[in-house]
Design a protein around this nucleic acid. Sequence first.
DNA 1: CGAGTGCATGTGTTT
DNA 2: AACACATGCACTCGG
Length: 882
Amino acid sequence: MSMKRCMNAGCGGAAAVGGAWRKGWMLRSGTFATLCDKCGVEYEQLAFCDKFHQNESGWRECAFCGKRLHCGCIASKSFLDLLDGGGVQCFSCLNNSRNSLTPSDIIQDLLPQSSQKFHALSARCYTDERMIVFSALHADGSSVVPTSYSPNNMNDDVTANGKFMQLGRNFEVNGDSTVVPAQGGCSNGSFGHVKQEQIALHIGELGHPNCSGQDQGLLGLLQVSNQIDTKNALKDTPSNPLAQACLSMNLGGSNMGSIMEASSKAGAWQIAPLHHGVVDDRKEQNKTLITLQHVQRARHLLPKLPNASHGATSEPPKELIPQMRIARPPAEGRGRNQLLPRYWPRITDQELQQISGDSNSTIVPLFEKVLSASDAGRIGRLVLPKACAEAYFPPISQPEGLPLKIQDAKGKEWHFQFRFWPNNNSRMYVLEGVTPCIQSLQLQAGDTVTFSRIDPEGKLVMGYRKATNTVALQDSQISAIANGALSCEALYSGVNENLSLTDKHGSWTNEGLPQTLLVPDKRSRNIGSTSKRLLMDSDDAMELKLTWEEAQDLFRPPPRVKPSIVIIEDQEFEEYEEPPVFGKRTFFTVQASGVQDQWIQCDDCFRWRRIPVEFLPPSKWACADNTWDSNRSSCAVPDELTSRELQVLLLQHADTKRRRIATSSKSRPSDIESTGLDALANAAVLGDSGTQAPPFAAATTTRHPRHRPGCTCIVCIQPPSGKGPKHSPACTCNVCMTVKRRFKTFMMRKKKRQSECEVSELSKKLPWNSTEEPEMKQNEPEIMDDIDLNCQPQREAVDQTAATSSSSSPQVTLSSMTSLVQVAGLPLENYLKQSRIASLTGIEQQHVSSSSPTVLQASLESETGGDDQQCGSDKVRSDGAA
DNA sequence: CGAGTGCATGTGTTT
DNA sequence: AACACATGCACTCGG
């Protein structure tokens, strides 16, 4: 066995090379460092476990599989992985030789090595596995030494079991060969899990203090055989400062091996169990190993907010913590650090407590999944995320899989079949037989099921969250935010996978701020779901999108923070070091003269005040802040508008929003592409019922929605392009009859509405109109005698303008449906002109002249009022089903 | 004929 | 480009 001299000047100590590893850890560079026996200083070296034999040509061969690793080329990890805790593992066969250690080993072997004291070293114990990773602070509190450790003695039984361990590689060697965290400063924070305790340890210095972070806190992990060992270990050294220590225990008791990865930036250590023992799964295990990566992630249970320097606003109120729905990176699991955040369990402490009850069991949240339509459907198959399945469920090598018992929150045990299908050289994991469970829990697509494990029993439990509240609360939540009544966390815990944290003022914290808010990202704009396929009522989806956009509109620069100006491609960007805050919600009006106003509600008296349009109100605003109108800068001063006027404006505003949603949905590409027949048919079914439906749900069919099997009407037999024979005026096909009936309905409704127009009249008399009103005041036709169903939208679009200008006569014969619609808008337009509502009519004219059939369709729907607006697609559906 | 099963395929996401 | 996964669909089986 060769020896290598310690490179620490003046030390001269030696470390063994070739045999069992001394204390060592993997460096980021891919090399392996060991600790000098004598001085404790580490140095890099190349060495191999004795399981790898050096052959005559200088290559080393795996004793298990015979594959070779070039001597001295540790970076050639295609064959070999050096285990930080000691030992090596062949990537080809996964056999490994490893060192292991017990807590007593750690303590007895480690502590005497230095006279320096560490300020704190928190440690954590994991059952079954025998690994220690720890870091510690210097006594001055400024330095952290993250390291791993393995004792001198090998434990062959572990080796024989084929288990292995691996530590973080996130350490780098600086010029002085000292070990520093790979990413930034060592951070504070707890990485504890559901049950953990932490205590300070005072132990000898292990290595080199170079963590740049000023943070304090934790720094280590212990992974030992079991709790008892740990406790015994502590007992074994009563005189040792460790007696003062506490070990953080995680009862994650499975037999899984673990990968531990230190991500020092967040002070977070990640543990990733690996498959073990199943030969067929080894390739995937390899992959798991190889693809280990840094994951800067949110911390565990009680996330420390990221920027301590921001002062006292960082910690969420303690009483809120159990309720906070925080995405918890799962504590362990094979390849768990590869899990996408969307699968991170967001179970609350309260829910955990509910599951665990009063028992001493520990609930280990594993992962969660939003149910897809397939998952929740009758097939009874729940597709499991591959990484989750492989990480947390028993390894399976045959497609038939294993029966799996999973207990729900009520204690009922469900029997599923956990299996996989081969899929594109990969696997697709499913849980079969979930229908009874899904039905029992009344779960639907969009709901979330969570999987946890009860330790130490290792029993799997599943919980669920219903999704409906999330969507329903959106608007109100945002409103509440705008009024400063709701923290952003409450909002985004429901709609975004990102962990969200707020300070107690409701401001975003850096770490918790969803990126989708800060930087609109194409990939993450699909709120609440990662898939378009996830069933969400389309209205809800659109509503979500709009409110999401509104939410973005409400962002304000952080108060009292001066931005630094960054110029990127000649564009100046303000860069803030603090996250934005939500501003207060307002609405805008435009006077007949074209002057715009912005209206804001006082937080104290709830009166509405007029403010300049360009003003970006902060989250709190009161009359006293009304510097523009001194006459109304006190809550004692009544509203500028009468309550009636206000009501009208607010109604208009709400209506505007609703219509904008509808319009936006109709201007989707699929709708734009819809044929004239679609527009016709959609129009035909409008207003026939009051059922609510997504306005665009039926837009892409190539046949008219009233088509029924056997229908030979011209619409159904002609190609979607509209070419072909024309409808006869006497055609009595469903569409024609419906269109005729529809326009009769328009007539009736118009008359009815005129009698109900008191509010509208009042609004017209107001000097203001809510903006974004272009589609609001379209009107119904006077008479619809002759309806041409042979709609050719491309041509009609041109005709519309002519119709608009030429015909206010009810007797005019129209050439198209869209022209009809156009004429339908004329009487009110005229009326509005007479009423000198210039802004409205102006907008409307603009829209008319540029109308596409789709827009007209939207207009048509708009004019039919709220009830009609809702009827479109559902009507289509119901008709189709009839 | 409907339910169940296994695989194929398309789409969206991640690397 | 590769991968993950939601869902479609052909096939089988049993009532």
